[in-house]
Design a protein around this nucleic acid. Structure first.
Length: 113
DNA sequence: ACTTTGACTATAA
DNA sequence: GTTATAGCCAAAG
């Protein structure tokens, strides 16, 4: 499969798009699935443009490697992201996903293989 | 082509 | 706990 455009962005979007409700994943996990485990920043970068896509990208389900809602400031309102996550059954405390290791959804494991 | 930037991560002080 | 620094890599200017 070959994507003429920036496959990085589209790949990120497609992965994030498949995150189940009540689950979260980390930037590094997505980057790792794309074959660039160190390109976690790029994942966030792609998220910045997720609202420009036709796809429904639940960026609120993407947090940093510690479950911290690093990108909450990009949802228009800092509390929006937490509210969305809580709306999906997740528990947020101190801007961090509780039981992060439990609700963590690894695309590299759940998606493929 | 070069520089800057950024929703990251890790380590150090 | 914070702030600084470095490594990382792709997109945008």
């Amino acid at each position: 499969m070959k994507q003429n455009r920036s496959d990085f962005y589209t790949s990120v979007w497609q992965i994030v798009e498949q995150i189940p409700i009540g689950r979260v994943t980390s930037y590094v996990a997505i980057a790792r699935t794309l074959g660039a485990g160190k390109s976690a920043r790029m994942v966030g970068y792609a998220m910045n443009a997720c609202h420009l896509t036709n796809l429904n990208v639940p960026a609120h389900r993407v947090v940093n490697n510690k479950g911290l809602l690093t990108g909450k400031h990009h949802f228009g309102a800092p509390e929006k992201m937490q509210e969305l996550l809580e709306s999906e059954g997740l528990k947020i405390e101190n801007d961090t996903v509780k039981n992060f290791t439990i609700v963590f959804w690894d695309p590299a494991k759940e998606l493929n293989l």
